[in-house]
Amino acid sequence: MIVNEAAETPVDNLLLTNAAHADVLAGGCACCDGREAFVALLRTICGMRDAQGAGAFDQIVLETSGLADPGAIATAISGDQMLARRLIVEDVIVLVDACHGAAQLSDEALCRAQIEAADRIIITKSDEPSARDTDRLIQTLKLLNPSANIEGAEKGVPVKLPAHDDATPYPLSGSGIETVPIKPHRLDISGGGGWASFSVWLSAVLTARGNDIVRVKGVVGSPDGRLLLQSVRNVVQPPEILPEPDDTGNGFLAPAEGVIVLIGRHIDEPTLERSWQKFVMGTGS
């Protein structure tokens, strides 16, 4: 476990006693000024793991500073030759304070970037505001990131969230902030030439639209086996070869092969389909 504090004096680490191993990275945020120290620490941890041999840990938990952009952290990992080979960003978990979440979402671009990058959103202190306000917050989060799982927790213990789907989301109007919400878009590429062809098209799409397409997920066939595709903004994780379907791996529920989900704004399914047909399949117009 790595605890990152943007402040010079670490305090959060005093609360962490159960982690198998904890490192504190203080005095700089891993996504920006602390980036070099963060990359160096990860390299050291990978080296330690090699020395441990069998029984070594297989997961690193990074608790970022509250000001970190998950996209920039993914970029830091994939930009390092050694780390890119060894680490996969598996799950981006974002905590939202039920009392302040709505105000932060309306004013802070960083807060929205964090929500958009999340695989799981955990709402804390959900019993402090009225159930109606928590409902509105949940609907706002669903609007911003329709594909994330939203859960409640208090000091690490899951709590039930109110569930009124008819609550009105808070208006998202902050000045200078992108107000078009992201949406998931599906693209069926099962009729095409697999990863070798699809990745050509996708690399062009992400180079042009990396700021609008916040996540891409899917399973794509290749000569070496099924590849798991995951991206955060324009950073694509080194694709992993998945075990065959009868072997479920580490509880990972692989989506159907050949269906890609692109989560983003200013894109639509008919255009994705037409573009894929025209450029990858060489058909249509």
Binding site: G193, S199, V200, V220, D224, F279, G282
Partner: peptide, 28 residues
């Protein structure tokens, strides 16, 4: 190499996909 080069390790497969990929690049 680049992430887009994943999934193809045999030299024969590499040769075969090279021309498919070039055709897509040129259409784009």
């Amino acid at each position: 190499g680049h992430w887009s080069d994943a999934g193809v390790s045999s030299p024969g497969d590499k040769m075969r996909i090279r021309f498919t990929r070039l055709a897509i690049v040129n259409r784009l």
